[in-house]
Design a protein around this nucleic acid. Sequence first.
DNA 1: GCAAAGATTTGCT
DNA 2: GCAAATCTTTGCC
Length: 230
Amino acid sequence: MSTAGPFDRSRLAGDPIQAARSLLGAILVREPDRAGRIVEVEAYVGVEDEACHARFGRTERNRVLWDGPGIAYVYLVYGMYDCLNVVVEPANRPAAVLVRAVEPLAGIDAMRAARLAHARARRRAWGDDRLRAEAARLDGLDPPRLASGPGAVAAAFSIDRTDTGRDLCDPGGPVRLAAGDPPASIGVSPRIGIAYAGEPWRSKPWRFFDPSSPAVSGRSAGSGRRVRRG
DNA sequence: GCAAAGATTTGCT
DNA sequence: GCAAATCTTTGCC
């Protein structure tokens, strides 16, 4: 895969909000054939953040959140979808950035194949005919939709919980970050799918996205306040 | 040991 | 706009 410059780990070691913003425009690489531009992220900050997995304290699942910036934290949600996080903050302080959407740059066909493989693995109730229909749906899906949403990002890049602990800043790693151009502007909104969290956490404006990208996820794509460049 | 809920996606009403 | 699919993690008894 082409080699953009490595992603500077120190950008993830400071304020988690700044770390999240700095990940917009970075390149997510999956060797040997896939790459895309990160266009939507959310910050999850510390044990007090009632939406953050660190709120339970250190457990077997979330322990890498304390391992320092640049490490991958992948968890299974709703029994079906893996979600990729980049651990941020120095070691001993837990925080992570959820990668919610990636705009494909290379490996479109490989991403379609990976999405279908994920469906095969997880949808036990689906017969062959249903899987054929899913293959056709993926074939017709516009490339910017292939990794739009956290579950779709992991599926398209063949990332799952076994990738937890991987160093995403290792320039030789099979799954890694590479440097990229920041967006011209950054959209901001509350985080998605965390109604269970109390205030003020539920309303914290900690979702960041590139308003110009067609890959931003959900109904709220492009919604939220637009702020100047990050 | 068991019940409940979840940082989602998709399809159907 | 609502619910299903699926299974791990957490919390409580």
